[in-house]
């Protein structure tokens, strides 16, 4: 009897655990099935590198959105990367324990703010500021980069902090005992030892920035053209799907799924790379 219920529990739990994997697999299959034939039909190079996107006239080139995603993501990294890593160093090395107990939860809270609220701040505060003091339409690469930079901070910071915390204290002591100052120790030994973990934090932040949709739609302006400067309006891959999916039919709809395939592959690659570099760290 008890033997039997053991077996039942075992299989139920196994099913639940595997269903998470199963849904990932189903999503991947579904997107590929809907989008991949379209890419082949249209020709991968034409789909990826043609810069006219006019669904009504059957022109499906996602190059402007590809460039848009790259600009915005790169901008987010420029803003959020150094800020996140520097913040992590400060928190791990130079903050008294009491202050740390306040700052860390606050940063984690940052991750819990819905992205629409970030977008709202971008539209209501940031875009007008950029329009007034720097120029351009306000809704721009710059605005999106700043907002996304702040959004990836919790990811970059918390993983960087884990990496810094896992550097053996003996490295630090060894360096200080050789007459290094605290900053020299930080820069030459601790950062070096935590390098792969910090790299992983930045890549995961990058994945988050590429995938973000709501906030970007609200602040990037969404014009389908290749931006000439950071003050130009821009549309990302995610925004393209979200904006047009509601009314798209036929080949247009397939083209959006194909955009999803591209996005999916890019994010998978980034995540695999991040996982690989975290594993490298553990090996050492």
């Amino acid at each position: 009897m008890s033997q039997k219920s053991e077996t039942v529990v075992y299989y139920v739990l196994q099913f639940i655990a595997l269903s998470a994997m199963g849904s990932l697999l189903l999503i991947a299959l579904f997107i590929l099935k809907e989008g991949f034939p379209f890419i082949l039909e249209e020709g991968p190079s034409k789909f990826l590198f043609s810069s006219t996107w006019e669904p009504a006239k059957e022109h499906f080139g996602i190059f402007p959105m590809l460039v848009g995603s790259v600009w915005v993501t790169f901008g987010a990294l420029v803003v959020g990367g150094p800020l996140g890593v520097a913040g992590a160093i400060y928190l791990v090395e130079f903050t008294p324990k009491g202050l740390m107990r306040i700052i860390k939860p606050v940063i984690e809270l940052l991750a819990g703010i819905p992205s629409v609220v970030y977008g709202f701040m971008g539209v209501a505060v940031l875009a007008p500021l950029i329009r007034t003091y720097i120029g351009g339409p306000g809704l721009s690469v710059l605005a999106a980069s700043l907002i996304l930079g702040i959004m990836i901070l919790p990811t970059v910071m918390s993983i960087s902090m884990d990496a810094l915390n896992s550097v053996p204290p003996s490295y630090k002591e060894g360096s200080l005992a050789l007459g290094a100052t605290r900053w020299q120790t930080q820069y030459m030994v601790v950062l070096k030892a935590a390098k792969s973990g910090i790299l992983a934090s930045i890549i995961l932040g990058m994945g988050r920035a590429i995938g973000e949709t709501m906030a970007v739609i609200m602040v990037a302006g969404n014009a389908v053209k290749i931006p000439n400067s950071v003050l130009d309006s821009v549309r990302t891959l995610t925004a393209n799907i979200a904006l047009e999916m509601g009314y798209a039919t036929g080949r247009h709809r397939q083209a959006l799924f194909a955009t999803g395939v591209v996005l999916f592959l890019v994010i998978m690659m980034l995540n695999s790379f991040a996982m690989w570099s975290l594993k490298e760290r553990r090996k050492k």
């Binding site: 490295y171 005992a177 030459m188 030994v189």
Partner: peptide, 26 residues
């Protein structure tokens, strides 16, 4: 006044860089 610890603490860099670490700090 320099110190050698109980557990060997090679810094995570090359042998050469470990030796020149101290002198190059200043």
């Amino acid at each position: 006044v320099s110190m050698v610890f109980a557990l060997p603490v090679a810094l995570p860099m090359s042998i050469y860089d470990n030796v020149v670490y101290g002198p190059t700090l200043s």
